[in-house]
Design a protein around this nucleic acid. Structure first.
Length: 561
RNA sequence: CGGGGCGUAGCGCAGUUGGGAGCGCGCCUGUUUCGGGUACAGGAGGCCGAAGGUUCGAGUCCUUUCGCCCCGACCA
């Protein structure tokens, strides 16, 4: 491609409210343009990257035996009413009416459509298992579109659905896709983590998220710096560390603490660090009242409590549901209720707790002497500096972008929609399903989030819009021009994707653009070429420049990639 | 949906107590410069988001409405 022909209008000035680096760079480099909130044009450069990512994904999907289809974006409401998601999906579903007043929606995902298709064609276990996928536009009326194409209302997604006769087959399929996803993210060159996740409105039992580490991410994940442990911060575990305070036990003392409820207020008032306080949180777990104890510098993790107690519904007790005033609750003398404590409070000596009486706390409270928890469980949220629950290594908490999500759906859709098959013994059973998504357009932005510097984008070669940028410093010089044209032709013949900067611009402008666009390889043809027949090869990612004679350029190009 | 802010040239913005529609970038013409967004001169480009109101007079004040952005609860 010739720069003089490319639909490329870089921008110097950016709106001040563009937050994500990727968003800024994509606008600046003319990859995308905003049409309305959460709706974008993909321009030639952006579109090429999108297509390259699509190709990688498509190749991996075909490699595990999935077949590509294209399902409609426009769905009749009937299918969505059968599964109940017409109402359940909520405001995010784009709903509309056709001319006959029939209700339709724009597909945010395709379980209903694909299940209806499979129901019509599949009757026997002999036809299972199989996988279908598509790369297609999805619509979600996001409450708050943000970060350019990272969270938009219309976006490109690859969605794959697998269909099985039994759990074992589902597990096999799930594992295959899991591996394929790893291949995809590796090939795109992303720094990512795989975490167990909530399945959300898609449903199902088991699910994993593929999260790309990035500052502008909206998810928070916790992972180990030395082993492979990773989880959403919401569900993350940690290794409790009990630090014994080195103090003489003092006699317990009741103190007047008027209107001081929060940890900060009490710790300020008494001049005691928050870690000396023991917070008591009253919850209802499936209807049962429980008191939870954690150190004052920690937060209770209700999600973990749910998991550890194996209960479905955990909620905080409201002020009017208890005889003890909230803010002054404490474990001393608390009767008829289970007390679950975080192991870390074992180390607290002469601690401060609520006195179960309005405006009073106890000081110099000691575990074992003044109160005894029913049991100890690690129930607090992870925080900076925590250790890995598996290996004891340092945990890292960081933000990330959810780019892939895989689910074992089971029969969530096949059952209500009547997608059944006949087993070898003649029984009718609902088909067991899995579904697997990748945010394709989101990956374009996510990759930029991880690959940029002050001068612009740094594309990994696997998804770069072009591989080589030929930069003739002076297009009016015929020696430079002729050599550049010749090199351009030869590289194209060799199968390279090449950008030739044939514009009559100053060299500085071309260098700026080459960096901004982030093409992996730059070939500079300038005054060194005129003087001594030397051209420069430079990798966008590295600082050094390789000087080679004009004859060698093509042969030595790969050295620098 | 709650809380805050913004709509003025293609883009980024200024516009004071109500009276002249402006600046920078980009674009067009010319000169100049030529390996890291050259410099100068001239020029084109506007229903001041929309509708209504107050006023002799509205970008500016009032009302309504549409759009956009930011902070919180959701998702590839």
């Amino acid at each position: 491609m010739r720069m003089s022909q490319l639909f490329y209008y870089p921008q110097k000035e950016m709106p001040k409210d563009v937050e994500a680096i990727s968003h800024m760079l994509m606008l600046k480099s003319c990859m995308i343009e905003r049409v309305a909130s959460g709706i974008y044009n993909f321009l030639p450069l952006g579109f090429r990257v999108l297509k390259r990512i699509e190709d990688i994904i498509r190749r991996e999907m075909l490699a595990i035996g999935a077949q590509e289809v294209l399902l409609p974006a426009l769905h009749p409401s009937e299918l969505w009413k059968i599964t109940g998601r017409w109402d359940e999906y909520g405001e995010e579903l784009f709903k509309l009416k056709d001319r006959h007043d029939r209700m339709m929606c724009l597909g945010p995902t395709h379980e209903e459509i694909i299940t209806a298709l499979v129901k019509a064609k599949i009757n026997s276990y002999r036809q299972l298992p199989f996988m279908l996928f598509q790369i297609q536009t999805k619509f979600r009326d996001e409450p708050r579109p943000r970060f350019g194409i990272i969270r938009s209302r219309e976006f490109i997604m690859k969605d794959l659905y697998s269909f099985h006769a039994d759990e074992e087959s589902l597990n096999e399929g799930y594992y295959k896709v899991y591996q394929a996803y790893k291949n995809i993210f590796d090939e795109i060159g992303l720094d990512y983590k795989i975490v167990e996740a909530e399945s959300g409105p898609i449903g199902g039992d088991v699910s994993h998220e593929f999260v790309i580490i990035a500052e502008s991410g909206e998810d928070e994940i916790t992972y180990c710096s030395s082993c492979s442990y990773s989880a959403t911060t919401e569900k993350a575990e940690y290794k409790p560390v009990i630090i014994e305070d080195d103090e003489e036990l003092l006699p317990i003392e009741k103190i007047y603490t008027p209107d001081l409820k929060s940890v900060d207020e009490v710790s300020n008032y008494l001049g005691v660090p928050p870690s000396k306080l023991i917070k008591t949180i009253m919850i209802k777990a499936d209807g049962r009242d429980i008191a939870l104890l954690v150190k004052g510098d920690s937060e209770v993790n209700l999600k973990r409590v749910e998991e550890l107690l194996d209960v479905k519904d955990v909620s905080l007790i409201e002020d009017n549901e208890t005889s003890v005033p909230l803010g002054f609750v404490g474990p001393v003398g608390l009767k008829g209720i289970e007390i679950i404590a975080d192991p870390e409070i074992k180390g607290v000596k002469n601690g401060v707790v609520g006195a179960n009486e309005k405006n009073y706390h106890f000081k110099n409270v000691n575990i074992g002497r003044d109160f005894n928890p029913t049991r100890f469980l690690p129930i607090r949220k992870v925080k900076k500096g925590d250790l890995c629950p598996r290996c004891g290594g340092d945990l890292i908490i960081s933000k990330g972008i959810e780019a892939g999500h895989i689910f074992k759906l089971g029969t969530k859709y096949s059952e209500p929609m009547g997608a059944v098959f006949q087993t070898a013994t003649g029984q009718l059973k609902p088909i067991i399903m899995g579904c697997y998504g990748i945010g394709v357009s989101r990956l374009v932005a996510a990759s930029i989030e991880q690959n940029n510097d002050d001068n612009g984008i740094i594309w990994p070669r696997s998804i770069a819009p072009y591989e080589v940028y030929i930069l003739p410093t002076d297009w009016t010089n015929n020696t430079i021009k002729n050599f550049s044209e010749d090199l351009y032709r030869k590289l194209l013949q060799k199968g390279y994707e090449v950008l030739l900067d044939d514009r009559d611009e100053r060299a500085g402008v071309k260098f700026m653009d080459a960096d901004l666009l982030g093409i992996p390889m730059r070939v500079t043809i300038g005054n060194k070429f005129i003087k001594s027949g030397i051209v420069e090869l430079k990798n966008r990612r590295k600082p050094d420049v390789l000087e080679v004679s004009a004859r060698e350029v093509i042969d030595r190009l790969e050295e620098v990639f």
